[in-house]
């Protein structure tokens, strides 16, 4: 808590004395600094967490690396700043970070009232509930009168309250500040169920002693499109963030991977040629190197590779693509044309 207060004080001071951060364009600031500063979660395995060699890994982390690759041609030129759930927006507003890539839900009020804008949705999520299999529950509607553990984060407390209000059921809500205490309370049986975004539940389940003892219930009680956020009124920087994400998606559609990107430079497909900067000068229009697309894929691969490596079925989280499949494979992942 003290840390949260400190960072908010720092943010307030930052707002007070460093209003010029927004005066110069973010791209110039980032280029002058020589690296990108990206706000991520503290430790959410699969989204942002250090691996056993201390290197940051995860879905959100790879989004940061792709933006760094677009700007510098090198996905490693990025500093990761851990942000907590309370201070993440202040960190962005005050200029402490250049982009926020932290499982953040794009909502109307955030977009309209927090002085920030959102890029394209990188992960279509929704709030779910997880219970021990031994409870014998198959639907969230059977959970009336149960105790439910959650973090104070975002809209989870409100969504679960709305869900039970709609079916006229009562429940006991236990709110923890720390993810560790939240998990401990759930695993000890203090709560019958734990609620969070489904991707986060998968992450919580992956660290259980025996993940197979727990199931995520079928109901999705809210829409949680997770998107990177950047400061408002800087459309050049907003374009760079958005098109870096869209390029990942377009690359999956065109079958360009980290492994074959060098061969694809010789591709006859005009779309691929434009994306990789072989023809035309799309990169320059954004104020970037013309090989920005090549650099992104060379550093992190395409959207599908980023998904599979961090949260996909081969990982501990074991998430299926579901709504995060490409649009032409029944999902919602869709990139506007890159031309």
């Amino acid at each position: 808590m003290k840390q949260a207060l400190l960072s908010i004080c720092a943010a307030a001071l930052g707002l007070a004395i460093a209003g010029q951060a927004s005066a110069a364009g973010t791209l110039e600031t980032v280029k002058a600094r020589g690296k990108l500063i990206c706000g991520v979660s503290l430790t959410v395995p699969g989204f942002a967490a250090p691996d056993d060699k201390g290197r940051m890994q995860g879905f959100d982390v790879d989004i940061c690396r792709s933006i760094a690759a677009a700007v510098f041609g090198d996905g490693e030129k990025v500093d990761f700043v851990p942000t907590n759930i309370n201070t993440r927006f202040q960190a962005l507003q005050s200029g402490e970070i250049d982009v926020l890539s932290r499982q953040t839900t794009h909502t109307f009020s955030r977009d309209a009232s927090l002085g920030l804008d959102f890029g394209p949705t990188v992960f279509y999520d929704g709030q779910g509930l997880m219970v021990p299999k031994s409870l014998g529950v198959t639907s969230a509607k059977e959970l009336t009168e149960a105790a439910i553990c959650t973090l104070p984060g975002t809209t989870t407390a409100q969504n679960i309250s709305d869900f039970f209000a709609a079916i006229n059921g009562k429940f006991e809500l236990v709110v923890f500040e720390s993810p560790d205490e939240n998990r401990a309370a759930f695993y000890s049986g203090r709560c019958e169920a734990i609620t969070s975004d489904r991707s986060d539940l998968a992450s919580i389940r992956s660290v259980a002693n025996n993940p197979d003892d727990y199931i995520v219930l079928p109901e999705t009680i809210s829409k949680e499109p997770l998107a990177p956020a950047f400061r408002q009124n800087d459309s050049n920087w907003g374009d760079i963030v958005s098109w870096s994400v869209w390029l990942l998606m377009a690359a999956e559609e065109k079958g360009i991977t980290q492994a074959n990107v060098d061969e694809k430079l010789k591709s006859e497909d005009p779309d691929v040629q434009r994306m990789l900067g072989v023809t035309e000068e799309l990169g320059k229009m954004l104020g970037l190197d013309n090989k920005w697309g090549y650099n992104i894929i060379k550093s992190v691969g395409n959207y599908g590779e980023v998904f599979d490596r961090n949260v996909g079925e081969g990982t501990k989280l074991g998430l299926t693509r579901g709504p995060n499949a490409l649009w032409n494979k029944g999902g919602l992942i869709f990139s506007p044309p890159i031309r």
């Binding site: 808590m1 908010i8 943010a11 759930i85 927006f89 009020s109 236990v174 500040e177 205490e181």
Partner: peptide, 29 residues
């Protein structure tokens, strides 16, 4: 105010939920 660590809904815990919903951290604090 250390209640926040163990999930007792004291002033700080409730304010935190409010802060997350409204994003108006400075006013809430």
């Amino acid at each position: 105010s250390l209640a926040i660590a163990i999930g007792y809904p004291d002033l700080v815990t409730v304010s935190n939920i409010v802060m997350n919903q409204t994003g108006q951290a400075m006013e809430t604090i």
